[in-house]
Amino acid sequence: MINQTLKQALCIGAVLAVVAGCQTQNYSRPGSDLAALRAQPAPTAGSLINPVKGHRFTDTWGAARSHGRRHEGVDIFAKKGTPVRSTTDGIVTRIGNNRLGGKVVGIQGPGAWHYYAHLSKFANIKRYQRVKAGTVIGYVGNSGNAKNTPSHLHYGVYLPKGAINPYPLINPNK
């Protein structure tokens, strides 16, 4: 009887160890890696890939927005659920929700922070995960204050001094 109970306990322990080993990897805050990325040169004209592959868009930088705000990015309209790709190699620093952007992802890339908003859902990414340019990070939607607009991605680029126009940085053919 004791041997059977011991065998069952060992079996359960082994199963728990296997399950724990299969769980999603947790990423710890990469402080020095983030600082190194911030210290690199900012993206240059045409150096970033199009976050919504195959979708052309216009320069909507600076357009008027509600409450006297100005548009700090570009909008790329696409069918809801279209994959959104990271425009750069970097580290995911934010995955979550906010009032204006809805479902948002932030990625610290070389010399700039990249902001992806109005997503319908997130891809299988985690905070502090390293990503490569082209990694799917979410899907086009109309969350946040875009709930009454056609589905689109709001994409912004921020330097330490503030937002810059991402339009000239994106190579629409990549």
Results as ranks from 00 to 15, higher is better:
Ile137Ser: 07
Gln129Met: 11
Tyr116Gly: 01
Val52Ser: 11
Ile107Val: 15
Gln8Ile: 09
Thr24Asn: 14
Ser66Leu: 11
Arg94Phe: 15
Ala45Asn: 08
Tyr158Gly: 05
Arg130Glu: 08
Ala20Phe: 09
Arg130Ile: 08
Lys161Val: 07
Ile76Arg: 12
Arg38Gln: 03
Ser66Gln: 11
Ser120Pro: 12
Lys161Asn: 08
Val15Trp: 03
Leu159Gln: 15
Asn165Met: 13
Gly102Asn: 02
Arg99Lys: 00
Pro110Gln: 13
Lys121His: 09
Gly144Asn: 00
Ser151Cys: 14
Pro51Ile: 06
Phe122Thr: 06
Thr93Asp: 03
Leu6His: 06
Ala39Pro: 04
Ala45Leu: 06
Ile2Gln: 08
Pro51Glu: 07
Thr60Lys: 10
Gly54Leu: 05
Arg29Asn: 03
Gly162Gln: 14
Lys147Val: 09
Val104Asn: 05
Val136Ile: 15
Leu34Arg: 04
Ser47Pro: 01
Ser86Phe: 07
Arg38Val: 07
Tyr27Ile: 05
Gly101Met: 08
Ile95His: 04
Ser32Val: 10
Thr24Gln: 14
Lys121Ala: 14
Leu6Met: 12
Gly31Val: 00
Ile107Leu: 10
Ile125Arg: 09
Val19Trp: 03
Tyr167Leu: 11
Pro30Arg: 00
Gly62Asn: 10
Ala78Glu: 11
Gln108Phe: 09
Arg70Leu: 13
Gly156Thr: 09
Ala63Met: 13
Gly111Pro: 04
Ala63Tyr: 11
Asn124Thr: 15
Ala64Lys: 14
Lys80Cys: 14
Leu100Gly: 10
Asn26His: 10
Thr87Trp: 04
Val52Gln: 11
Thr149Asn: 06
Lys126Arg: 13
Ile91Cys: 02
Asn98Phe: 13
Cys22Tyr: 12
Pro51Asp: 09
Leu169Ser: 00
Ala17Phe: 04
Gly81Tyr: 04
Val136Pro: 05
Leu10Trp: 13
Thr93Val: 07
Tyr128Arg: 05
Cys11Ala: 02
Val105Ala: 05
Gln25His: 01
Val74Ile: 14
Val74Gly: 03
Thr5Leu: 14
Leu153Lys: 13
Asn124Tyr: 05
Gln25Phe: 01
Tyr27Ala: 07
Tyr116Asn: 05
Ala9Gly: 15
Gly134Asp: 13
Gly138Met: 10
Phe122Ala: 03
Tyr27Arg: 05
Lys132Ile: 09
Gly134Pro: 07
Tyr139Met: 01
Lys7Thr: 12
Val131Gln: 15
Gln108Thr: 10
Asn173Glu: 12
Tyr155Cys: 12
Asn50Glu: 15
Phe57Gln: 02
